[in-house]
Nucleic acid binder design. Structure first.
Lengths: 232, 232
DNA sequence: TCTTTTATTCAACGATGAATGAAAAAACGC
DNA sequence: GCGTTTTTTCATTCATCGTTGAATAAAAGA
């Protein structure tokens, strides 16, 4: 268990919390850029301008440091999104539109990306890397992310009931792949479009992403567009 | 430059090519599972059952070995897809449907995943990891993947002309995020659905993915569903 | 103030990383 | 077969990894 928060039975020395924060921020940034194995504890310490031994002192191990970095913003992020989702359902008396559910799920990404705190953009990159390397912090996915995703899928069922169960999961899967990649800002689009399109222009991406996936979800879940049937 | 194929001015010793192949296969598998920095050259050599020095002898460096592993199947894969795309356009006299373009782009994934050669499934995982860590082999993306993606986007313009340029890029971006994640088989869906849905059932995923994205593309590119406009 | 707890520094530990160069072995052209 | 080239082995290069323990400093409790 990552000791992200030391038990404060006695008041912590003022600079200790600051040290932990500095290490976490450095870890977030470097892990986001180069992944778990691409970064050394010493690099993180250098970036945070602290002694290398402090990373282990405060977080126990490199693995726990990674988990702590991923977890740090996950709590806040998931709580916000869950509140948005609950409100979205309540506002619609239990029958929200697909688009409103997608907005509730997605809008916190945009908000934080534009919040002025660059740490959020790093964290989204970290999330993208962890998404294709779940072995780095499986417990964070299991305990923090998965439960919220299940609520999202329940909301999708409220918005578009009656489809076969597997379709909700596959549709979510497509959606999450696109969403996570979009907010990872890999810069690929910039190159492909010769600069006409910028990965960092997340507002434009968001404005297109929401209707794009609302339509995709609806066509599949309503059965308006049937599965191909030729894949077997 | 990765010497994926040694210049055969003299016939190579039979076992030399076999050694290279064994190293490449081991590298493909291990890099796919744990990423570039998560694997050591010694592990690859052990998996391939060869001396560790041979990896450097045949490929020059760990980085070139990674590039070679990513490149190995890329040539064949991209050529097939390009042929499919060209045929799809020609068959429709220059005005293909969105769905047919998506099928041409995507179907080779499914074919190889079901080909019985498990190396392809590893390679798709490798692709997914490289997709969020393009710094591992930037030249492969630039030289092999990007040109084909540009052709795909041109085909989308034939199928649904007249939309603002950026929309094609963003739509492709969403699509590629979902596609790559789907064929990476992370197993996340299995867990989320309590086993009701299997990541490895790529035929089912493909059958839903094609209509899902055909509809998403169409709604955005035709302007039937306008961008949100609230993201700024 | 004195004791206890918490935080930080510093110097190491053993293990392992990628890569290399020289020597040995195997296949080749002739 | 013989000389040449290609491939393989082996020992070793230097650098660095994550982590630890002892010593020191700073804060907090009494």
């Amino acid at each position: 268990m990552a000791e992200a928060v030391q038990k404060p039975k006695r008041a912590a020395r003022p600079s200790a919390d600051a040290t932990r924060t500095r290490i976490l921020e450095a870890a977030e940034k470097l892990f986001a850029d180069r992944g778990f194995h691409g970064v050394t504890v010493r690099e993180i310490a250098r970036e945070a301008d602290v002694d290398p031994a402090l990373a282990n002192y405060h977080f126990g191990s490199k693995e726990q440091l990674f988990s702590s970095a991923l977890l740090a913003r996950a709590e806040e992020f998931m709580a916000e999104r869950e509140a948005a989702l609950t409100a979205c359902i309540a506002d619609a008396d239990g029958t929200p539109t697909l688009e409103s559910v997608i907005v509730a799920y997605t809008h916190p990404y945009l908000e934080h990306a534009q919040s002025g705190d660059p740490g959020w953009r790093s964290w989204f990159k970290l999330l993208a890397k962890a998404n294709t390397s779940p072995e780095w912090a499986p417990e964070v996915f299991r305990d923090r992310f998965d439960p919220f995703v299940r609520k999202f899928i329940e909301a999708m069922k409220l918005a578009a009931p009656g489809a076969p169960d597997e379709r909700y999961y596959w549709c979510y899967h497509f959606f999450s792949g696109a969403l996570v990649l979009t907010f990872a800002e890999t810069g690929r689009m910039d190159r492909l479009s010769d600069g006409k399109c910028r990965s960092g222009d997340l507002a434009s991406g968001y404005d297109l992403l929401v209707p794009f996936f609302a339509e995709g979800f609806e066509s599949i879940l309503s059965g308006r567009r049937p599965p191909l049937g030729g894949g077997a």
